[in-house]
Design a protein around this nucleic acid. Structure first.
Lengths: 174, 174
DNA sequence: GCTTGAATGTTAGTCACTAACATTCAAGCG
DNA sequence: CGCTTGAATGTTAGTGACTAACATTCAAGC
C-alpha cells in the first residue's frame, strides 16, 4: 500500500510526531479521509498484530509441571523458532520507528493487550490463578518487545536470535 | 487539588474517554486552560511517577553474583518493602481507572520509560550488557505494573503484598 | 446503456493541546 | 494610602487526530 510506503519514508525523515496524516495522504496521492478508511489511527501504519494463535498453542504445549512464567517464556520461544523469518526489512523499519517514539512505545504496549489476554486465558485454563497468569503474560511479553526493540536497532542480528536472547535473560532457572 | 477530585469522580461515573477536559475543568470551577497549566495532558491526572531513586539504589545493592534479571526483581522487592504504605485510597482509584482503560495502560507503560531507563543504566553500570539490561528492566517493570493492576481490582489485598506476589511469579529460581 | 456498489472526496464538527495576549488580584514597598 | 509587580487565571485563535453525513466517481455486470 502506498500509504505505508509514504508513511515510513516521512516518519524516518521528520519523525513520527512531526509528520501529519494529511502529509502522508498527500504523498500517497490521496485524501486524509481515505487514510482513515484504511487505518483506524495514525499509529496503525506501524502496528500490526502478530501470531497469536501459534503462540497460544505453543504455550499450551509446555509441560504443565513447569511454573506458568516459564511455560509462557518457553512457549513463545518455541513459537518463534517454528515461524519463518518474515519480510524483515519493512518490519525492521517499523519497529525502529516505534522504538524511538515514546508515544508509539505506549501504543505498542496497548496493542499487545489482546495477546496478553490470550496468554492469560490459556494459562488460566491450565489451572493457573488469574493474577499469577497476568504477571507471567505481561512480563514475558515485555521481554519479547524489548528483544524486538533491540533487534531493530542492531543491524547485524537476526530476528529469531534477538528473541531467543531476550528470553534467555528472563529464563534464569533454565 | 480540586481538579483531581473532579476528574476521578467523572472518570468513575462516565469512563475516561467519555469525559472531557472541559467538563473536568468546569466541575472544578475553572477553565480548560487552567487544567493544562497544572497537568501537561489529560492522562497526567492519573499518572504520577514514583520512587525512582530508592528503586535504583536497591537494585544496586543486590549481590552482583546474581543474574541481572534477579537483581532487578529483588531490588524492586526490597525497595517496596522499605517504603511506607502511601495514601492508598486515591492511588487505588487512579490505578483502577488506568487498568480499565486501554489507552491509559499504554500511557502508563510509556510513563514508566524513565524508570526503565534508570534501571537499565544501573545494570549497565554494574557490567551488564545493554540489551540484557533492557530486557530485564522491561520485564520486571511489567510484572510490577501487572501486580499493581491486580491489586487495584482486588479490594482485599494490601499494596505491598500484591507487589511481592507479583515478583514471586517471575523469580522462578528463588 | 443502465444500474449498482465500492472507493474516494467534501464538509463540518469534536476534542486534546498550544501559543499569544489580556485580566485580576493580592502582597509588598515607597 | 496609592502603586507596582508577579502569580494565577481567563480569552481567543489555531493545529492536528479523528468522526459522521452526505456527495461523487467509475468500473463491472446485466
Amino acid at each position: 500500500m502506498a500509504l505505508v510506503e509514504a508513511g515510513l519514508d516521512l516518519f524516518e525523515q521528520q519523525g513520527y510526531e512531526a509528520t501529519t496524516v494529511a502529509e502522508i495522504a498527500r504523498a500517497a496521492g490521496v485524501t486524509e479521509m481515505t487514510f482513515f478508511r484504511y487505518f483506524p489511527a495514525k499509529e496503525h501504519l506501524l502496528l500490526d498484530d502478530p501470531y497469536d494463535p501459534e503462540l497460544i498453542a505453543a504455550i499450551g504445549a509446555q509441560p504443565i509441571t513447569d511454573p506458568p512464567f516459564l511455560r509462557a517464556a518457553r512457549g513463545i520461544r518455541a513459537a518463534w523458532r517454528a515461524l519463518p523469518e518474515p519480510e524483515t526489512p519493512i518490519i525492521r523499519r517499523r519497529v525502529r520507528i516505534t522504538a524511538q517514539t515514546p508515544s508509539l512505545r505506549g501504543a505498542m504496549w496497548r496493542s499487545t493487550g489482546n495477546t496478553e489476554q490470550a496468554i492469560v486465558a490459556r494459562l488460566v485454563a491450565d489451572g493457573t490463578s488469574p493474577h499469577v497468569a497476568r504477571v507471567a503474560a505481561a512480563s514475558v511479553l515485555a521481554a519479547l518487545v524489548a528483544g524486538l526493540f533491540t533487534w531493530a536497532e542492531d543491524e547485524s542480528a537476526s530476528l529469531a536470535d534477538a528473541i531467543e536472547r531476550a528470553l534467555d535473560v528472563i529464563e534464569v532457572a533454565s
